[in-house]
Design a protein around this nucleic acid. Structure first.
Lengths: 205, 205
DNA sequence: CCTCTCAGTTTGTGATCACATCCTAAGTCA
DNA sequence: TGACTTAGGATGTGATCACAAACTGAGAGG
Protein backbone atom coordinates (compact mmCIF):
# COMPACT_ATOMS: atom_id res chain seq x y z
CA UNK A 1 0.00 0.00 0.00
CA UNK A 2 1.10 3.58 -0.62
CA UNK A 3 3.22 5.16 2.08
CA UNK A 4 1.27 8.41 2.15
CA UNK A 5 -1.96 6.51 2.63
CA UNK A 6 -0.61 4.46 5.51
CA UNK A 7 0.70 7.60 7.17
CA UNK A 8 -2.63 9.34 6.65
CA UNK A 9 -4.67 6.52 8.15
CA UNK A 10 -2.56 6.16 11.25
CA UNK A 11 -2.55 9.88 11.93
CA UNK A 12 -6.27 10.08 11.29
CA UNK A 13 -7.21 7.47 13.87
CA UNK A 14 -4.84 9.04 16.37
CA UNK A 15 -6.55 12.38 15.95
CA UNK A 16 -10.10 11.03 15.89
CA UNK A 17 -9.52 9.03 19.05
CA UNK A 18 -8.13 12.03 20.85
CA UNK A 19 -4.56 10.84 21.21
CA UNK A 20 -3.26 14.30 20.36
CA UNK A 21 -3.82 17.34 22.55
CA UNK A 22 -5.35 20.51 21.12
CA UNK A 23 -2.62 22.80 19.78
CA UNK A 24 -0.06 20.05 19.32
CA UNK A 25 2.32 20.84 16.44
CA UNK A 26 3.36 18.41 13.74
CA UNK A 27 6.33 18.78 11.39
CA UNK A 28 7.01 17.16 8.05
CA UNK A 29 10.40 15.83 9.04
CA UNK A 30 9.12 14.67 12.40
CA UNK A 31 6.23 12.73 10.90
CA UNK A 32 8.54 11.37 8.23
CA UNK A 33 10.99 10.06 10.79
CA UNK A 34 8.24 8.64 12.99
CA UNK A 35 6.67 6.63 10.17
CA UNK A 36 9.87 5.83 8.32
CA UNK A 37 9.02 7.77 5.17
CA UNK A 38 10.44 10.85 3.46
CA UNK A 39 8.97 14.31 3.52
CA UNK A 40 6.84 13.78 0.42
CA UNK A 41 4.35 11.23 1.78
CA UNK A 42 4.39 12.96 5.16
CA UNK A 43 3.40 16.19 3.47
CA UNK A 44 0.57 14.53 1.56
CA UNK A 45 -0.83 12.94 4.70
CA UNK A 46 -0.74 16.20 6.63
CA UNK A 47 -2.24 18.27 3.83
CA UNK A 48 -5.03 15.77 3.43
CA UNK A 49 -5.85 16.03 7.10
CA UNK A 50 -5.76 19.81 6.83
CA UNK A 51 -8.21 19.62 3.93
CA UNK A 52 -10.57 17.62 6.11
CA UNK A 53 -10.34 20.11 8.95
CA UNK A 54 -8.56 17.68 11.24
CA UNK A 55 -5.51 19.94 11.40
CA UNK A 56 -5.01 23.65 10.99
CA UNK A 57 -2.47 25.38 8.81
CA UNK A 58 -0.84 28.55 10.15
CA UNK A 59 0.04 31.43 7.84
CA UNK A 60 3.63 30.24 7.71
CA UNK A 61 2.64 26.72 6.70
CA UNK A 62 3.00 25.15 10.12
CA UNK A 63 0.43 22.50 10.86
CA UNK A 64 -1.03 21.75 14.28
CA UNK A 65 -4.04 20.27 15.98
CA UNK A 66 -6.85 22.84 16.20
CA UNK A 67 -7.82 24.67 19.39
CA UNK A 68 -11.51 25.21 18.85
CA UNK A 69 -13.38 28.29 20.01
CA UNK A 70 -16.64 27.86 21.89
CA UNK A 71 -18.59 29.08 18.88
CA UNK A 72 -16.91 26.52 16.69
CA UNK A 73 -17.61 23.73 19.17
CA UNK A 74 -21.28 24.65 19.32
CA UNK A 75 -21.48 24.74 15.56
CA UNK A 76 -19.87 21.34 15.20
CA UNK A 77 -22.23 19.96 17.83
CA UNK A 78 -25.16 21.35 15.84
CA UNK A 79 -23.76 19.68 12.73
CA UNK A 80 -23.43 16.37 14.54
CA UNK A 81 -27.03 16.66 15.70
CA UNK A 82 -28.29 17.50 12.23
CA UNK A 83 -26.43 14.73 10.43
CA UNK A 84 -26.61 11.98 13.01
CA UNK A 85 -30.31 12.37 13.68
CA UNK A 86 -30.89 11.96 9.95
CA UNK A 87 -28.58 8.94 9.76
CA UNK A 88 -30.25 7.26 12.73
CA UNK A 89 -33.65 7.93 11.24
CA UNK A 90 -32.61 6.31 7.97
CA UNK A 91 -31.08 3.35 9.79
CA UNK A 92 -34.20 2.67 11.84
CA UNK A 93 -36.26 0.78 9.22
CA UNK A 94 -33.28 -1.47 8.50
CA UNK A 95 -32.32 -2.14 12.11
CA UNK A 96 -32.90 -5.80 12.80
CA UNK A 97 -32.07 -7.78 15.93
CA UNK A 98 -28.47 -8.60 15.00
CA UNK A 99 -27.67 -4.89 14.87
CA UNK A 100 -29.21 -4.24 18.27
CA UNK A 101 -27.25 -7.12 19.78
CA UNK A 102 -24.08 -5.68 18.35
CA UNK A 103 -24.86 -2.24 19.75
CA UNK A 104 -25.45 -3.71 23.18
CA UNK A 105 -22.14 -5.52 23.01
CA UNK A 106 -20.35 -2.29 22.07
CA UNK A 107 -22.18 -0.51 24.87
CA UNK A 108 -20.72 -3.04 27.30
CA UNK A 109 -17.25 -2.19 26.01
CA UNK A 110 -17.95 1.49 26.53
CA UNK A 111 -18.92 0.80 30.14
CA UNK A 112 -15.71 -1.12 30.61
CA UNK A 113 -13.63 1.76 29.31
CA UNK A 114 -15.47 4.15 31.59
CA UNK A 115 -14.61 1.94 34.54
CA UNK A 116 -10.96 1.82 33.51
CA UNK A 117 -10.89 5.61 33.04
CA UNK A 118 -9.45 4.96 29.57
CA UNK A 119 -10.27 8.16 27.67
CA UNK A 120 -8.96 7.02 24.28
CA UNK A 121 -10.71 3.68 24.63
CA UNK A 122 -13.89 5.43 25.59
CA UNK A 123 -13.84 7.72 22.55
CA UNK A 124 -12.97 4.85 20.24
CA UNK A 125 -15.80 2.58 21.40
CA UNK A 126 -18.25 5.45 21.58
CA UNK A 127 -17.61 6.33 17.94
CA UNK A 128 -17.81 2.64 17.06
CA UNK A 129 -21.30 2.59 18.59
CA UNK A 130 -22.45 5.47 16.43
CA UNK A 131 -20.76 4.25 13.27
CA UNK A 132 -22.25 0.79 13.63
CA UNK A 133 -25.72 2.28 13.76
CA UNK A 134 -25.19 4.75 10.92
CA UNK A 135 -23.69 2.16 8.61
CA UNK A 136 -27.20 0.75 8.32
CA UNK A 137 -28.45 4.02 6.87
CA UNK A 138 -26.81 3.18 3.52
CA UNK A 139 -25.74 6.79 3.13
CA UNK A 140 -21.97 6.80 2.58
CA UNK A 141 -21.61 10.51 1.77
CA UNK A 142 -23.54 11.49 4.85
CA UNK A 143 -21.52 9.16 7.03
CA UNK A 144 -18.25 10.44 5.58
CA UNK A 145 -19.29 13.99 6.37
CA UNK A 146 -20.18 13.00 9.92
CA UNK A 147 -16.79 11.38 10.37
CA UNK A 148 -15.00 14.55 9.34
CA UNK A 149 -16.91 16.34 12.08
CA UNK A 150 -15.74 13.71 14.55
CA UNK A 151 -12.24 14.25 13.25
CA UNK A 152 -12.42 17.99 13.83
CA UNK A 153 -13.63 17.39 17.38
CA UNK A 154 -11.09 14.65 18.19
CA UNK A 155 -8.50 16.55 20.20
CA UNK A 156 -11.20 18.61 21.91
CA UNK A 157 -13.15 15.48 22.87
CA UNK A 158 -10.12 14.20 24.66
CA UNK A 159 -9.82 17.41 26.63
CA UNK A 160 -13.52 17.20 27.43
CA UNK A 161 -13.45 13.68 28.83
CA UNK A 162 -10.30 14.43 30.72
CA UNK A 163 -12.04 17.17 32.67
CA UNK A 164 -15.36 15.34 32.86
CA UNK A 165 -14.19 12.28 34.80
CA UNK A 166 -17.11 10.02 33.96
CA UNK A 167 -18.21 7.23 36.22
CA UNK A 168 -21.29 6.12 34.29
CA UNK A 169 -21.72 5.01 30.68
CA UNK A 170 -23.77 7.43 28.58
CA UNK A 171 -27.42 7.12 29.54
CA UNK A 172 -28.62 8.14 26.08
CA UNK A 173 -27.20 5.02 24.50
CA UNK A 174 -29.75 3.00 26.44
CA UNK A 175 -32.47 5.28 25.09
CA UNK A 176 -31.19 4.82 21.54
CA UNK A 177 -31.29 1.05 21.88
CA UNK A 178 -34.76 1.15 23.44
CA UNK A 179 -36.10 3.36 20.64
CA UNK A 180 -34.62 1.02 18.04
CA UNK A 181 -36.29 -1.96 19.65
CA UNK A 182 -39.64 -0.14 19.78
CA UNK A 183 -39.37 1.24 16.25
CA UNK A 184 -40.01 4.65 17.82
CA UNK A 185 -38.67 7.22 15.36
CA UNK A 186 -39.35 10.45 17.30
CA UNK A 187 -37.84 8.85 20.39
CA UNK A 188 -34.77 7.78 18.44
CA UNK A 189 -34.26 11.26 17.01
CA UNK A 190 -34.50 12.79 20.45
CA UNK A 191 -32.15 10.24 22.01
CA UNK A 192 -29.48 10.71 19.33
CA UNK A 193 -29.73 14.49 19.52
CA UNK A 194 -29.40 14.41 23.31
CA UNK A 195 -26.45 12.04 23.22
CA UNK A 196 -24.59 14.12 20.67
CA UNK A 197 -25.12 17.54 22.22
CA UNK A 198 -24.99 16.47 25.85
CA UNK A 199 -21.24 16.37 26.42
CA UNK A 200 -20.28 19.10 24.00
CA UNK A 201 -22.67 21.66 25.40
CA UNK A 202 -21.04 21.67 28.79
CA UNK A 203 -17.59 21.91 27.28
CA UNK A 204 -18.49 25.23 25.70
CA UNK A 205 -19.09 26.94 29.02
CA UNK B 1 1.00 33.29 -2.61
CA UNK B 2 1.89 29.61 -2.64
CA UNK B 3 1.78 27.89 -6.02
CA UNK B 4 -0.15 24.87 -4.77
CA UNK B 5 -2.79 27.12 -3.28
CA UNK B 6 -3.24 29.11 -6.47
CA UNK B 7 -3.54 25.91 -8.46
CA UNK B 8 -6.03 24.51 -5.97
CA UNK B 9 -8.26 27.57 -6.05
CA UNK B 10 -8.43 27.80 -9.81
CA UNK B 11 -9.22 24.13 -10.20
CA UNK B 12 -11.80 24.31 -7.44
CA UNK B 13 -13.81 27.08 -9.03
CA UNK B 14 -13.62 25.36 -12.39
CA UNK B 15 -15.07 22.21 -10.89
CA UNK B 16 -17.70 23.92 -8.76
CA UNK B 17 -18.93 25.96 -11.71
CA UNK B 18 -19.26 22.88 -13.87
CA UNK B 19 -16.53 23.71 -16.35
CA UNK B 20 -15.35 20.08 -16.33
CA UNK B 21 -17.46 17.21 -17.61
CA UNK B 22 -18.12 14.17 -15.43
CA UNK B 23 -15.40 11.57 -15.91
CA UNK B 24 -12.79 14.00 -17.21
CA UNK B 25 -9.26 12.87 -16.31
CA UNK B 26 -6.53 15.09 -14.88
CA UNK B 27 -2.80 14.33 -14.79
CA UNK B 28 -0.09 15.77 -12.58
CA UNK B 29 2.15 16.78 -15.47
CA UNK B 30 -0.79 18.16 -17.41
CA UNK B 31 -1.97 20.34 -14.54
CA UNK B 32 1.60 21.39 -13.87
CA UNK B 33 2.13 22.49 -17.44
CA UNK B 34 -1.22 24.26 -17.59
CA UNK B 35 -0.55 26.32 -14.48
CA UNK B 36 3.18 26.73 -14.96
CA UNK B 37 4.22 24.79 -11.87
CA UNK B 38 6.07 21.55 -11.25
CA UNK B 39 4.51 18.24 -10.29
CA UNK B 40 4.79 18.89 -6.56
CA UNK B 41 2.24 21.73 -6.22
CA UNK B 42 0.04 20.11 -8.87
CA UNK B 43 -0.05 16.95 -6.82
CA UNK B 44 -0.96 18.83 -3.66
CA UNK B 45 -3.80 20.67 -5.38
CA UNK B 46 -5.23 17.48 -6.84
CA UNK B 47 -4.94 15.50 -3.63
CA UNK B 48 -6.64 18.27 -1.72
CA UNK B 49 -9.55 18.21 -4.13
CA UNK B 50 -9.71 14.44 -3.83
CA UNK B 51 -9.86 14.79 -0.05
CA UNK B 52 -12.85 17.12 -0.45
CA UNK B 53 -14.64 14.71 -2.73
CA UNK B 54 -14.37 17.00 -5.74
CA UNK B 55 -12.30 14.45 -7.62
CA UNK B 56 -12.04 10.68 -7.44
CA UNK B 57 -8.90 8.61 -7.18
CA UNK B 58 -8.74 5.34 -9.09
CA UNK B 59 -6.95 2.32 -7.68
CA UNK B 60 -3.90 3.14 -9.76
CA UNK B 61 -3.73 6.71 -8.50
CA UNK B 62 -5.33 8.33 -11.51
CA UNK B 63 -7.54 11.25 -10.68
CA UNK B 64 -10.69 12.25 -12.53
CA UNK B 65 -13.94 14.11 -12.13
CA UNK B 66 -16.58 11.87 -10.52
CA UNK B 67 -19.47 10.26 -12.41
CA UNK B 68 -22.12 10.10 -9.72
CA UNK B 69 -24.63 7.27 -9.41
CA UNK B 70 -28.29 8.10 -8.93
CA UNK B 71 -28.14 6.99 -5.32
CA UNK B 72 -25.22 9.30 -4.69
CA UNK B 73 -26.97 12.23 -6.33
CA UNK B 74 -30.05 11.70 -4.20
CA UNK B 75 -27.94 11.51 -1.09
CA UNK B 76 -26.08 14.71 -1.91
CA UNK B 77 -29.39 16.42 -2.62
CA UNK B 78 -30.64 15.30 0.79
CA UNK B 79 -27.47 16.70 2.35
CA UNK B 80 -27.96 20.02 0.61
CA UNK B 81 -31.53 20.15 1.88
CA UNK B 82 -30.50 19.32 5.43
CA UNK B 83 -27.64 21.82 5.61
CA UNK B 84 -29.06 24.66 3.56
CA UNK B 85 -32.42 24.68 5.31
CA UNK B 86 -30.57 25.04 8.60
CA UNK B 87 -28.32 27.78 7.24
CA UNK B 88 -31.24 29.73 5.83
CA UNK B 89 -33.08 29.38 9.10
CA UNK B 90 -30.12 30.76 10.99
CA UNK B 91 -29.70 33.61 8.53
CA UNK B 92 -33.33 34.69 8.76
CA UNK B 93 -33.15 36.69 12.03
CA UNK B 94 -30.13 38.60 10.70
CA UNK B 95 -31.51 39.28 7.22
CA UNK B 96 -31.97 43.00 6.89
CA UNK B 97 -33.01 44.98 3.81
CA UNK B 98 -29.52 45.38 2.33
CA UNK B 99 -29.22 41.61 2.10
CA UNK B 100 -32.56 41.24 0.36
CA UNK B 101 -31.63 43.95 -2.15
CA UNK B 102 -28.42 42.11 -2.87
CA UNK B 103 -30.26 38.84 -3.37
CA UNK B 104 -32.66 40.47 -5.81
CA UNK B 105 -29.77 41.90 -7.76
CA UNK B 106 -28.13 38.47 -7.97
CA UNK B 107 -31.46 36.99 -9.01
CA UNK B 108 -31.53 39.43 -11.93
CA UNK B 109 -28.09 38.17 -12.99
CA UNK B 110 -29.34 34.59 -12.83
CA UNK B 111 -32.23 35.51 -15.12
CA UNK B 112 -29.79 37.10 -17.54
CA UNK B 113 -27.67 33.96 -17.66
CA UNK B 114 -30.74 31.84 -18.27
CA UNK B 115 -31.64 34.06 -21.20
CA UNK B 116 -28.14 33.76 -22.62
CA UNK B 117 -28.16 29.97 -22.15
CA UNK B 118 -24.87 30.37 -20.28
CA UNK B 119 -24.66 27.19 -18.16
CA UNK B 120 -21.48 28.09 -16.28
CA UNK B 121 -22.73 31.60 -15.62
CA UNK B 122 -26.00 30.22 -14.38
CA UNK B 123 -24.36 27.83 -11.94
CA UNK B 124 -21.98 30.53 -10.71
CA UNK B 125 -24.65 33.12 -10.01
CA UNK B 126 -27.01 30.54 -8.56
CA UNK B 127 -24.39 29.47 -6.03
CA UNK B 128 -23.63 33.13 -5.34
CA UNK B 129 -27.28 33.61 -4.44
CA UNK B 130 -27.19 30.79 -1.92
CA UNK B 131 -23.80 31.71 -0.46
CA UNK B 132 -24.82 35.33 0.01
CA UNK B 133 -27.79 34.23 2.08
CA UNK B 134 -25.91 31.61 4.11
CA UNK B 135 -23.05 33.96 4.93
CA UNK B 136 -25.49 35.72 7.24
CA UNK B 137 -25.94 32.55 9.28
CA UNK B 138 -22.52 33.10 10.89
CA UNK B 139 -21.82 29.37 10.70
CA UNK B 140 -18.51 28.93 8.85
CA UNK B 141 -18.12 25.19 9.43
CA UNK B 142 -21.62 24.52 8.18
CA UNK B 143 -21.12 26.70 5.13
CA UNK B 144 -17.80 25.04 4.35
CA UNK B 145 -19.47 21.65 4.48
CA UNK B 146 -22.22 22.86 2.18
CA UNK B 147 -19.67 24.12 -0.31
CA UNK B 148 -17.96 20.74 -0.46
CA UNK B 149 -21.32 19.26 -1.41
CA UNK B 150 -21.61 21.84 -4.19
CA UNK B 151 -18.12 20.87 -5.25
CA UNK B 152 -19.03 17.21 -5.47
CA UNK B 153 -22.07 18.05 -7.56
CA UNK B 154 -20.28 20.52 -9.84
CA UNK B 155 -19.65 18.42 -12.95
CA UNK B 156 -23.03 16.73 -12.60
CA UNK B 157 -24.81 20.09 -12.30
CA UNK B 158 -23.39 21.08 -15.63
CA UNK B 159 -24.70 17.90 -17.22
CA UNK B 160 -28.05 18.54 -15.60
CA UNK B 161 -28.31 22.06 -16.92
CA UNK B 162 -27.38 20.94 -20.39
CA UNK B 163 -30.26 18.51 -20.59
CA UNK B 164 -32.71 20.76 -18.79
CA UNK B 165 -32.63 23.71 -21.19
CA UNK B 166 -34.13 26.28 -18.86
CA UNK B 167 -36.07 29.23 -20.11
CA UNK B 168 -37.18 30.63 -16.75
CA UNK B 169 -35.20 31.68 -13.70
CA UNK B 170 -35.78 29.42 -10.67
CA UNK B 171 -39.22 30.14 -9.24
CA UNK B 172 -38.20 29.15 -5.72
CA UNK B 173 -35.78 32.04 -5.44
CA UNK B 174 -38.73 34.39 -5.51
CA UNK B 175 -40.31 32.37 -2.70
CA UNK B 176 -37.10 32.57 -0.68
CA UNK B 177 -36.97 36.34 -1.04
CA UNK B 178 -40.65 36.67 -0.16
CA UNK B 179 -40.25 34.53 2.96
CA UNK B 180 -37.25 36.59 4.03
CA UNK B 181 -39.23 39.80 3.66
CA UNK B 182 -42.14 38.36 5.65
CA UNK B 183 -39.93 36.84 8.34
CA UNK B 184 -41.73 33.57 7.61
CA UNK B 185 -39.46 30.79 8.85
CA UNK B 186 -41.53 27.72 7.85
CA UNK B 187 -42.05 29.26 4.42
CA UNK B 188 -38.33 29.91 4.08
CA UNK B 189 -37.43 26.34 5.02
CA UNK B 190 -39.88 24.96 2.50
CA UNK B 191 -38.71 27.30 -0.27
CA UNK B 192 -35.03 26.44 0.25
CA UNK B 193 -35.75 22.73 0.40
CA UNK B 194 -37.78 22.91 -2.79
CA UNK B 195 -35.17 24.94 -4.62
CA UNK B 196 -32.36 22.58 -3.65
CA UNK B 197 -34.09 19.29 -4.42
CA UNK B 198 -36.08 20.46 -7.43
CA UNK B 199 -33.48 20.17 -10.15
CA UNK B 200 -31.53 17.28 -8.71
CA UNK B 201 -34.54 15.04 -8.27
CA UNK B 202 -35.33 14.97 -11.94
CA UNK B 203 -31.71 14.30 -12.83
CA UNK B 204 -31.80 11.05 -10.89
CA UNK B 205 -34.50 9.53 -13.07
C1' DC C 1 -12.67 -9.18 -38.89
C1' DC C 2 -11.71 -10.04 -34.14
C1' DT C 3 -8.65 -11.02 -30.22
C1' DC C 4 -4.37 -11.33 -27.98
C1' DT C 5 0.39 -9.78 -27.19
C1' DC C 6 3.95 -6.76 -26.24
C1' DA C 7 6.83 -2.80 -26.58
C1' DG C 8 6.76 2.14 -26.13
C1' DT C 9 4.81 5.76 -23.61
C1' DT C 10 2.46 7.91 -20.02
C1' DT C 11 1.66 8.40 -15.23
C1' DG C 12 1.92 8.36 -10.12
C1' DT C 13 5.24 7.67 -6.14
C1' DG C 14 8.75 8.69 -3.14
C1' DA C 15 13.43 10.52 -2.22
C1' DT C 16 16.48 14.27 -2.21
C1' DC C 17 18.10 18.88 -2.62
C1' DA C 18 18.48 24.04 -2.62
C1' DC C 19 16.38 27.93 -0.94
C1' DA C 20 13.63 31.34 1.57
C1' DT C 21 11.28 32.09 5.70
C1' DC C 22 10.28 31.53 10.42
C1' DC C 23 11.32 30.61 15.02
C1' DT C 24 14.22 30.43 19.06
C1' DA C 25 17.40 31.58 22.33
C1' DA C 26 21.64 33.45 23.55
C1' DG C 27 23.79 37.70 23.78
C1' DT C 28 23.88 42.84 24.08
C1' DC C 29 22.81 47.30 25.41
C1' DA C 30 20.17 50.72 27.85
C1' DT D 1 16.40 43.88 35.13
C1' DG D 2 14.17 44.15 30.83
C1' DA D 3 13.65 44.80 25.91
C1' DC D 4 15.95 44.51 21.58
C1' DT D 5 19.15 42.29 18.26
C1' DT D 6 21.07 38.71 15.85
C1' DA D 7 23.02 34.33 14.62
C1' DG D 8 21.97 29.60 14.19
C1' DG D 9 18.81 26.01 13.57
C1' DA D 10 14.40 24.28 12.14
C1' DT D 11 10.77 24.20 8.83
C1' DG D 12 7.82 24.46 4.60
C1' DT D 13 8.11 24.92 -0.58
C1' DG D 14 8.96 23.66 -5.05
C1' DA D 15 11.91 21.41 -8.58
C1' DT D 16 13.96 17.36 -10.30
C1' DC D 17 15.02 12.59 -10.75
C1' DA D 18 14.74 7.44 -10.80
C1' DC D 19 11.65 3.85 -10.73
C1' DA D 20 7.65 0.80 -11.04
C1' DA D 21 3.12 0.28 -12.52
C1' DA D 22 -0.50 1.20 -15.76
C1' DC D 23 -2.13 2.34 -20.09
C1' DT D 24 -2.20 2.53 -25.25
C1' DG D 25 -2.05 1.17 -29.78
C1' DA D 26 0.05 -1.20 -33.48
C1' DG D 27 0.93 -5.61 -35.23
C1' DA D 28 0.63 -10.77 -35.28
C1' DG D 29 -2.11 -14.75 -35.26
C1' DG D 30 -6.49 -17.02 -35.52
Amino acid sequence: MAAHDRTYRQLRTRIMHGELRPGEALTLRGIGKEFGVSMTPAREALRRLVAEGALTLSASGRVATPELSNDRIEELAALRALLEVELASRALPRAHMALIDRLESIHANISMNVKKHDAVGYIRTNLEFHRTLYLRAQAPAMLAMTETVWLQLGPTMRALYGRLNRTEPPIHHRHIIAALKAGDEPGLRLAVRSDVTHGLRLLAS
